[in-house]
Write a protein that binds this DNA or RNA. Structure first.
Lengths: 275, 275
DNA sequence: CGTATGGTTGATACCCGTCAACCGGTGTGG
DNA sequence: CCACACCGGTTGACGGGTATCAACCATACG
């Protein structure tokens, strides 16, 4: 279940190689500079492709670093660690098109654990081989830098998000980011099928699971979000955005009056409503 | 005062070129692979060196990106932006040896503003020239990747820090990180001369300035920190670390009993004291 | 001295973490 | 098939930490 070496497992393991050219998230991944031969170049760098089952770990904190990078072809991952006092702290979620393992480059042991939240398919690279290939392949080098910079930008955005004091701002921002990520993959950004638990979200945003649950319900009451188990449907993007920016949701004008929104309990959103 | 082009300013402006070989933070910066000729290579890439006065901006949000990277030779900077609701959000602080401008690569306009918190000396690079030089200079390319990865790691650490719920944990972690940064520069990590205001710290950690002030005072009462205006002196590193990790400061054993620590008001630290 | 900025301190309100109970779904074993 | 345990989610009650607002003080500057 928690094996670090996924190859050892039953229906998880090496799978026949669907090439980069056929990959749906190619343009988010290494072969972005994607003429046919660019793809072939990246294809040759893939050590192997394999499947991970939900709940299996790709690596765990304190495991020795094997100098691998993993491109997620499909599936969702949670990156987390145990904080010094023993609490779960979620460093992030990753999905199709993202790279795993960047954070571990140059380390002797992993600082984070990576676990599959859904069945997933990965492409495994050797990090040193990639670096060496980049020396001769300028577009590849550019692409790697680009991905690294994107990662940096994302992380900065997360920091700013976490700075927001209110649970509503954090959660609304989180949902927006989730939605944006889906859109980037060409999926519908309105319907979000969560792969993580409320607790995971809380451990990511610095909130209690109970607060996540309550806040989602509040969004529902405001009419900007439909919540059904792990499926979120964004009903009012502008309203969510307003909350994420710290504005009063009602003042910002929730989309259509006449929705469930109107019956929302008054006076819950925003400490600035009457300030 | 807020000019984006620092060259226009009175005593700020271009200064004679002290070379990389003579720079005190050389080993934190680009010429890390620092044999004499490595330094010369980097020296040639420096467009110019110049001075900024306290309060001057290096760039401001929404300014067009000029594709420059800046290495801080001395001085402190604050990176910040105005959040959508108009609040100051501090994205980070940078000091000698750090690079400025990485976050803006690939953008048309700056997202953040960078302001000097103290008089500073900068080395200016052209980012495209650097990238091109890296194609022929493998160690330089390595070094750039290294710096980028370090930035990423730092940002992840910040995210985790901001996830911590308590003001004490955040602030203790912040002070630890500050101290570590000074040590990295070869300075004494115990005495910290802050260049930023309490408000800045609060805007960085998601706390109110009043809370920063009170929490510092509490640390003082616990005997692990001496606070005098903007000078902090770490008296009990282990105690601070314990707080940062969320442990009860007293349970973790504040350094020497018999210090001022003992008279600290009971029951303030940690929600887990009696849990 | 007048002003502005930064820091400290106090009173108050309120958000959210914690704890607890409960519920539905899933998997397991008898 | 049912009993049971377990997990994830929801909901309520409660207390504490912290934001907010305000007043006041120190310092710097002209």
């Amino acid at each position: 279940m928690t094996s670090t070496n996924p190859h050892a497992l039953a229906s998880a393991g090496r799978i026949p190689a669907p090439s980069c050219a056929a990959c749906k998230v190619r343009q988010l991944c290494l072969p972005d500079h994607a003429d046919e031969d660019g793809c072939a170049g990246v294809d040759r760098l893939v050590l192997q492709r394999y499947r991970l089952l939900r709940g299996e770990h790709l690596y765990q904190a304190s495991d020795p670093v094997r100098q691998r990078l993993y491109a997620i072809q499909s599936g969702q991952f949670k990156i987390y660690r145990l904080s010094p006092e023993g609490r779960h702290r979620v460093a992030g979620f990753r999905g199709a098109g993202d790279l795993l393992g960047l954070e571990s480059i140059g380390l002797a042991n992993h600082r984070n654990s990576a676990v599959a939240l859904s069945d997933a398919v990965l492409c495994e690279f050797s990090q040193p081989m990639l670096a060496e290939a980049a020396l001769r392949d300028t577009p590849l080098a550019r692409r790697l830098d680009q991905l690294l910079l994107a990662e940096l930008t994302r992380e900065q955005a997360v920091s700013l998000l976490l700075c927001e004091s209110g649970a509503e701002q954090k959660l609304a921002g989180f949902i927006e980011r989730l939605s944006a990520a889906r859109c980037r993959r060409g999926e519908d950004g309105r319907v979000l099928e969560l792969s993580m638990t409320r607790t995971d979200i809380g451990d990511y945003l610095g909130l209690a699971a109970a607060t996540v649950s309550r806040t989602l319900k509040r969004f529902h009451g405001l009419g900007c979000l439909a919540v059904s188990k792990r499926q979120l449907t964004i009903l009012d993007r502008a309203g969510l955005g307003a909350i994420a920016s710290g504005q009063d949701a009602r003042a910002a004008g929730l989309a259509q009056p006449g929705l469930a929104a109107v019956h929302g309990r008054p006076g819950r959103i925003s400490r600035r409503a009457d300030g």
